[in-house]
């Protein structure tokens, strides 16, 4: 499924209404079957662009086209369902519901709108991401790396065509970093569109295409 950010722009304002940061009108067309990486310093606008691509931040200008849909012309209900069906998101930091088990966390997107549990895929993800021993544990007791792997499994359980990952290797040790990046590379290999933003230089060797962001401009 094609993802096209067409001249999307966004401004953050200070309390005194002056512009704090501006993502300049940006065009982004990550390719299907490729792992596209956006690198840049903190505050360069990477996460803002990723959030726009995820349908989570309404741009001030431009359009976000996913397949044949202009995502921001949809209602919140339609956009949420669309996101649930087609976009898998791995956010920054710890993003688990700590009072739910690992399995319940992974199945969140499925439980929202679907009746049937994809047992085979669930077991496969749990196995491949090294979560087998933890599947019935409460997520609150996991390490940072384990939580990140749960977030990856959750992003993939609905078989989305587009995967968006925001600093997926942040705070991870070398083993976990390798495991996560390999997983993302493999997902792209399955023909999915994978977009990752990071300032982790080691991640570059896994990318098929690297874009640089600086001061709100995609170079």
């Amino acid at each position: 499924m094609k993802l096209v950010a067409d001249k999307v722009g966004y401004k953050y304002y200070r309390k005194n209404k002056k512009v704090l940061f501006e993502l300049k009108e940006t065009v982004l067309k990550p390719e299907e079957g490729k792992l596209t990486e956006i690198v840049g310093h903190s505050g360069s606008g990477k996460s803002t662009l990723l959030n726009i691509c995820a349908g989570l931040l309404t741009p001030d200008t431009g359009h976000l086209l996913v397949g044949d849909k202009d995502l921001y012309s949809l209602s919140d209900e339609e956009r949420s369902r669309f996101r649930n069906a087609h976009i898998g998101i791995i956010p920054q930091g710890q993003s688990v519901l700590k009072h739910l088990t690992v399995t319940e966390n992974i199945l969140l997107p499925i439980s929202m709108y679907r009746e049937d549990t994809p047992t085979n895929l669930l077991n496969e993800l749990i196995e491949n991401l090294g979560l087998k021993k933890l599947e019935n544990e409460k997520a609150g007791g996991l390490s940072g790396g384990e939580m990140r792997r749960v977030a990856i499994a959750r992003a993939l359980i609905g078989k989305p065509e587009i995967i968006l990952a925001d600093e997926p290797t942040g705070d991870l040790d070398a083993d976990n970093r390798k495991l996560v990046l390999t997983a993302l590379k493999n997902i792209a290999g399955e023909g999915k569109t994978v977009l990752m933003v990071t300032h982790d230089r080691e991640a570059e060797e896994y990318a098929d295409k690297i874009l640089k962001m600086d001061g709100g401009i995609l170079i």
Partner: peptide
Amino acid sequence: VKELAVLRISGASKKM
């Protein structure tokens, strides 16, 4: 906030 945001990225609408 984070918990609700996790639900949003997983596809929960504001109404949900």
